[in-house]
Amino acid sequence: MKPGERDIIIRTVCRLLVPFVQLFGLYVIMHGHSSPGGGFQGGAIIASSFILLAMGGGYDEVKRRFSLGALTATTSAGVLLYAGLGVVCLMLGANYLDYAALPVSDARSVGMLLIEIAVGITVTAAIISIFHDLVTFE
């Protein structure tokens, strides 16, 4: 076994666990309305699934799956989605971030779900980005 290589059991178990961890993270984001959870927690769980992949398969495995530019763009996309929802409310004639103006039923609940998704995207991308920068620094 070469120095940078992991045992096949660790590698396989980590790779098998990753989709379940990611699914649980999505569940936590989506179900934050009626149980403990939300964007911050779900984002951290999805980010830690990538960290698990890095621990199991070596960091090159993870780097093949996303580009750095896309990671930075995703970090900004979450903040822009959040601020953009506020601007949408402004255009519909209400105050900034006043979701009651959205033209759907249960508007405030739907607005909160969008906010949680935006927060989740930002937290996921930010934690992966920090982890990537710390690991690849020579």
Partner: peptide, 28 residues
């Protein structure tokens, strides 16, 4: 929304959360 923490976080204090998300973005 039944979860009180969620509705205070994302609705009544939404400005606050926007600031926090900006802080995390700035950290990254």
């Amino acid at each position: 929304v039944p979860n009180m923490v969620t509705f205070v976080l994302a609705d009544y204090r939404s400005f606050d959360t926007l600031g926090e998300v900006t802080v995390i973005f700035t950290g990254a």
